Computed example of a mutant assay.
Amino acid sequence: MDEGRLSLERGVATNCARACAEFADELRALRERARQLGKIDGFGTFPSGIALATKFSRKAVGGDYSMVQALTDHIAEVEAMREVFERIEARYAAAEQRGEERFAAIDPGR
């Protein structure tokens, strides 16, 4: 980082985009596991046990900012980051191509 500017070498943004894609896949797997927690039992048949099971089920799925919703939001953010890294790499490649074309115009034998 230099004077508020971030510089990356070729391929770094691609690696970051790949890491984001892998992380998003891991978050999706966690979200699926969280969805399975929407039906919790094992707290017994007393009203307090039923209330506790309902409370934990709603924390996983369907409650106020449930785990499923939180993971969905995180996936969206990681996907947005992946897209930014992909655009960075595309711009880097385009700038490099323009530079190569300019040098080739100066010295066609290169």
Rank of each mutant, 00 (worst) to 15 (best):
R58H: 12
I40Y: 05
F85C: 01
A76M: 01
I75E: 04
G62Y: 11
K39E: 00
G99T: 06
H74F: 07
L71Y: 07
A76E: 09
G62K: 02
I40Q: 00
E101L: 15
V84P: 03
L37I: 01
F46A: 10
R98K: 12
K59M: 13
G62L: 10
G62S: 08
M81Y: 04
A90N: 11
A104C: 06
E79G: 02
Q97A: 15
G49C: 09
D41C: 07
R91Q: 13
P108T: 03
F56E: 02
K39R: 13
E96S: 10
A76G: 06
L71E: 00
Q97M: 11
K39S: 06
S48I: 08
T54E: 12
A93D: 11
Y92I: 02
A104T: 05
D107K: 07
H74Y: 08
G49P: 06
E89S: 08
K39F: 14
I75Y: 01
V61R: 01
G38W: 05
V68P: 02
A76I: 01
M81W: 03
I40H: 04
I106Q: 14
K55T: 11
V78T: 06
R33Q: 12
F85L: 02
D41M: 10
A76R: 07
F85P: 04
E83L: 07
I75S: 04
E77H: 10
R35H: 10
E79R: 03
R35C: 09
A95G: 09
K39I: 09
V68I: 07
G42V: 07
A80L: 03
L37E: 04
A51E: 15
R35S: 08
E101H: 08
